[in-house]
């Protein structure tokens, strides 16, 4: 190929010696054309790059705009918010909106409830998940594969189908308006068991057998070897579970919508029932911002784990 190339190059560079003048003119033209197309290509490339960046930055602005608008609105006075043409930065910054929102929505109580439910359900859920995943990954028992397949099959069924009966069940158990009702029904997640089992399977079995020979108990082995080795997965599960408590709306509203047990999301919706019409938006947006800030903090510090967990699960909370 290189020889052929050389010949062609020679043709272009030294045409006079080999051919008549018309051929030479053609060859010079093609050299010019080559430069032209090369230049056109560079221009095209720069143009494409420019368009790509322009598109991405516009999309990023659209994605960020609601957050900006939330903070902007939450810091305005009511009269400034009600101006015909909205201002893009508050003239007078009203931090007092946040205090008002905190009191109006009884946010302290809501935060407290949500943290209690989130922490307790995460801890219990982790224990159950670790034990089950360990049994599926390391122990041999009759019907193991059948049971595991059965568990996976339940993942296909939409949650609404369970809720109808669970509503009756928790009512009969007298669990309505307690913390228990918010924690217990969702402790077992088949998906988390599946995720952790896959992780456990990657740990060589020889380690377990060696530990057995040394007389180490299962629990000690789990605690010392399995859990440290699968810590990233456990952290992902913890974050998703906590976010689940923070964002759950339907079930808490259905079974625990009293003052004492309301969670953050249904509490927020309950405190600000009006969405349209003449609403005191600065205070409402301040409440929304207060509810969103903890999530942003989690996002800033633990983004890696969330992204890893999410890309494998495809579920929100």
């Amino acid at each position: 190929m290189s020889d052929e190339n050389k010949e062609i190059r020679n043709d272009i560079k030294a045409p006079k010696s080999t051919a008549d003048s018309s051929y030479a003119a053609k060859a010079v033209m093609s050299e010019k054309d080559l430069k032209k197309t090369a230049a056109a290509q560079t221009v095209m490339q720069i143009l494409v790059k420019f368009l790509v960046y322009a598109f991405l930055i516009i999309m990023a602005i659209i994605v960020l705009f609601p957050f900006y608008w939330m903070i902007n609105s939450s810091l305005k006075t009511l009269s400034e918010y009600r101006e015909v043409v909205p201002t893009f930065w508050p003239r007078k910054i009203m931090f007092s909106n946040y205090l008002e929102a905190y009191n109006a929505a009884n946010l302290g109580r809501l935060f407290f409830n949500t943290v209690i439910v989130g922490v307790v359900s995460t801890l219990l859920s982790l224990v159950i998940t670790v034990l089950s995943a360990f049994a599926f990954a390391r122990l041999e028992f009759k019907g193991k594969n059948l049971l595991f397949a059965g568990l996976l099959a339940t993942m296909m069924i939409p949650g609404e189908l369970f809720t109808i009966t669970n509503y009756t069940t928790v009512t009969n158990l007298g669990w309505r308006n307690t913390y228990t009702v918010l924690i217990v029904p969702f402790l077992v997640s088949v998906f988390y068991i599946y995720l952790l089992r896959q992780n456990f399977l990657q740990i060589p079995n020889e380690l377990y057998l060696a530990a057995k020979v040394d007389g180490t108990s299962d629990i000690k082995y789990l605690w010392r070897v399995m859990i440290p080795l699968s810590l990233p997965t456990l952290i992902s599960i913890t974050i998703l579970k906590m976010m689940g408590a923070w964002n759950s709306y339907i079930w808490p509203r259905l079974v625990a919508n009293d003052e004492a047990h309301r969670l953050i999301t249904n509490g927020l919706r309950n405190a600000f029932k009006d969405t349209t019409g003449d609403v005191n938006y600065p205070v409402q947006m301040a409440a929304v911002a207060l509810v969103s800030f903890p999530l942003f903090l989690v996002f800033v510090f633990l983004r890696k784990y969330i992204m890893k967990g999410v890309s494998r699960s495809g579920i929100k909370g």
Partner: peptide, 18 residues
């Protein structure tokens, strides 16, 4: 682009409503 994932759909819905 990942930021909207970590939000509360009721809370941000209220922002959109506003």
């Amino acid at each position: 682009f990942f930021l909207p994932y970590v939000t509360n759909s009721i809370a941000i819905g209220m922002v959109f409503a506003a």
